[in-house]
């Protein structure tokens, strides 16, 4: 751009404004780290200081892990998000392939239904799905956490759009080589769709790792708690009296995704903004 012509104070001003904004955005993270590193007497003092006089992060973490089975909750988070994603792919990919590349009666209405399904917010179906799981006796289990999300209409839509861009010749060549339609999905389409699948995977894992509403509704037993539910439970149990370990627990809960994000920012931003297609 031609901005080079007028230089002057602009780059400096840009940095000043952006850094100020960044500080506000980062404030909760900084404060969380700071509080998690402070012993109780420093937290409950009216004097503000960022750097703890006595560094107590390890004590707070130890206390957090002692009071709540954080490993268990992290593991629950992993089990739930990975199962959801795996099942979503297993179900969405074949459907997306059929919608993109095969001609069959009812394809149009089915695709319209998928598009309509994208518009339905998850809270809207919560009551009937809850009742259904209640009837099945499946409440308060991993199944209750996973089952309702095995179908991702958004995933079907996304993969279908991606498969549309795969040349028909590739599929015809596979057919000439004697690969069945099922084989084509997994041996031809999946490998070409790895970037889209990755992006969708990030989207799906982040959404369900952070989900609070649904686990809150279907779970009773702490043994199935997902990370958000666990940290909320921790907070309620401590009733706002013990912020050091609470902040340490919050830190542990956000750490996996934040670290993964920092390691692969581009992919994460791509994945999360996939909803941009919605």
């Amino acid at each position: 751009m031609s901005r080079t012509i007028k230089l002057g104070a602009w780059p400096l001003l840009r940095h000043v404004v952006l850094l100020a904004g960044a500080l506000v955005v980062l404030a909760p993270f900084i404060w969380m780290l700071s509080t998690a590193s402070k012993p109780a007497d420093e937290i409950y003092s009216s004097e503000l200081h960022l750097i703890p006089h006595h560094f107590a992060l390890w004590e707070n973490l130890r206390e957090a892990f002692a009071k709540a089975d954080l490993w268990r909750y992290l593991l629950n988070g992993l089990i739930v998000t990975v199962s959801i994603f795996a099942l979503q792919i297993l179900i969405a990919l074949p459907a997306a392939y059929a919608l993109a590349k095969l001609r069959f009666l009812g394809r149009g209405p089915l695709f319209a239904l998928v598009l309509f399904g994208i518009l339905i917010p998850p809270q809207a179906t919560a009551i009937p799905v809850f009742l259904l799981l209640h009837k099945l006796g499946a409440l308060d289990s991993y199944a209750a956490l996973v089952l309702p999300f095995t179908i991702s209409v958004f995933g079907i839509f996304l993969m279908r759009q991606f498969f549309k861009t795969v040349p028909d010749d590739l599929i015809d060549a596979a057919r000439m080589d004697g690969i069945s339609e099922f084989g084509i999905v997994w041996r031809v389409m999946l490998p070409t769709a790895i970037p889209a699948v990755t992006a969708f995977g990030i989207f799906s894992v982040v959404a369900h790792w952070n989900d609070y509403f649904w686990p809150l509704i279907v779970l009773n037993s702490p043994q199935y708690y997902t990370p958000p539910l666990a940290v909320a439970h921790f907070r309620n149990a401590e009733a706002g009296t013990n912020y050091g370990p609470l902040m340490a627990a919050a830190l542990v809960i956000i750490a996996p995704l934040v670290i993964a994000f920092l390691l692969a920012q581009r992919r994460f931003i791509e994945g999360i903004t996939l909803t941009g297609l919605k």
């Binding site: 960044a22 790792w209 952070n210 940290v231 919050a250 809960i253 934040v258 999360i272």
Partner: peptide, 12 residues
Amino acid sequence: YFLPVMATLIAM
């Protein structure tokens, strides 16, 4: 600026 989007909202 994107960090808050990633961090678990309940924890934050």
